[in-house]
Design a binder for these strands. Structure first.
Lengths: 188, 188
DNA sequence: CCGATTTGCCTAAAGCCTTTAGGTAATTTC
DNA sequence: GAAATTACCTAAAGGCTTTAGGCAAATCGG
C-alpha cells in the first residue's frame, strides 16, 4: 500500500486549509483523515490528540500572521504603520477565517512555539508604538488597547454584529484606526 | 415515576450554570441530562438541538447582562457612565465565564430574542455616548469602537494574554477606559 | 370522578468523533 | 540483503447527537 506521507507539519497545514473551508470548529481528526484517504487512527501517530491538532493549526496561523505583519510594517512609522498593521490582521481574518479563528484557540498550556509567536506579535505592536513615544507602563497599556480593539472589531465584524447597519463596517474601520492614532498621539 | 419538571426555560437556566462551572464548550445535551438525572433523549422534547440549547443559554446571558448594564448606567453620564458600563461587562465575564462565552455564540440565524438583546446592548452604549455629543455617523463608529475594545479586552484577558506581565491587567483596565473617555471627548 | 387526550420521560438504535492497543507492510539503515 | 524503524491498518470501547416509537403521569371534558 502506498503511503500518504503524513507528518505533523503536513497535517497542520492541511488542517489550516480545512479550517478555512469548513470552519475551525469543524476541523476534526476524522475529517482530516478523510481528506488524506487514510484511516483515522493513523493520524494519531503524528498528532497527540484533537486538541494537539488544533494547537498546531493555531501555531501555523499565528506564525503566518506574524510574518505578514512584519513585512507590512517594515519601513513604516506612525499612523501609516498602525493602519497597515491593523489591515493585515483584518485582511487575514477575512481571507482565512478558519485560520484566524484558530489563533484564538488556547490549549491548557501553550506550546513554546505559541509563546514565541505571541511574543512576536506584541513585539510588532511595540514597534508600531515607537512612532508615538510612550513610556512604560503607558506603552504596555497601549499594546493592550490596540490588541483589544483590533481583535475585538474583527471578531464582532465576523460575527455579523455590524452587518445591515449604516455606516458600513468598511467605512467605520479606517475612522476607528484614525481615532486610535489620535489617541496615541495625545496619550497623557 | 416522578417527573423532573423540565422546560426550555429551566434547561437554559441550568445550562447557564453548568457553563459557568465547566465551560461553555463543555455544555452538552448529555451533560445537562445527567444533571437532571434524566435520559438524554428526554431533553429533545424541550430543546430542538444542541445548537438550540446553546442559543437559549446565550439569550439568558445576553438578557441578564443587559439588565445589569441598564441598572448600572441609570442616572450616570460621561466618564462615570462609561466606566461603570465597561466594568459591568468585565465583572460579568469574570463572575460568569461560561455565560459570557455564550454571548459569543452565534447560531446560523439569531432568534428574535437575541436580536432584541443585541439591540438593547447597543442602545445602552448609545445612551452612554449621549454624554459626549457625537453626530452620526461618528456615533455609530464610537459604538463599534467601544464594543470592540471592551469585548476584545475581556476576551484577551480571559485567554491569559495579559497574565504574568507588568502592569497587571487590573491596572491597565481603568487607564484604557480613561483613554477611551479622552478619545470620545475629542472625537473630531 | 372518570375516561380521553396531551405531555413528559423512557428505551432503542444509528451515526459520527476520539482515543488506545496491537498488527502488518513499506522504508530506511547498516 | 537483514534488521530496525516508521507509516498505516484493523479492532474496539466510550461519548455525544438525534430520531422513532412507547408507556405512564398529568390534565381536561363531561
Amino acid at each position: 500500500m502506498a503511503r500518504a506521507g503524513l507528518t505533523g507539519e503536513r497535517l497542520a497545514q492541511a488542517g489550516a486549509e480545512l479550517a478555512d473551508e469548513v470552519g475551525f470548529d469543524q476541523v476534526t481528526v476524522s475529517a482530516l483523515a478523510r481528506q488524506f484517504g487514510v484511516q483515522v487512527a493513523s493520524l494519531y501517530s503524528h498528532v497527540r490528540s484533537s486538541a494537539d491538532l488544533k494547537a498546531r493549526i493555531a501555531t501555523v496561523a499565528l506564525t503566518e500572521l506574524a510574518d505578514q505583519a512584519a513585512t507590512a510594517v517594515a519601513g513604516r512609522a506612525g499612523r501609516d504603520a498602525l493602519s497597515v498593521l491593523a489591515d493585515v490582521y483584518r485582511d487575514y481574518a477575512r481571507k482565512h477565517p478558519g485560520r484566524y479563528a484558530a489563533t484564538r484557540f488556547v490549549p491548557g498550556s501553550p506550546t513554546p512555539e505559541q509563546v514565541e509567536a505571541g511574543r512576536r506579535h506584541s513585539e510588532l505592536v511595540r514597534a508600531v508604538l515607537r512612532g508615538y513615544d510612550l513610556d512604560e507602563p503607558a506603552q504596555t497599556d497601549a499594546v493592550r488597547l490596540l490588541g483589544s480593539t483590533i481583535h475585538g472589531y474583527i471578531q464582532l465584524e465576523s460575527a455579523g454584529t455590524f452587518a445591515f447597519t449604516e455606516p458600513s463596517s468598511d467605512d467605520s474601520w479606517p475612522r476607528i484606526i484614525d481615532a486610535l492614532d489620535t489617541l496615541l498621539r495625545s496619550w497623557s
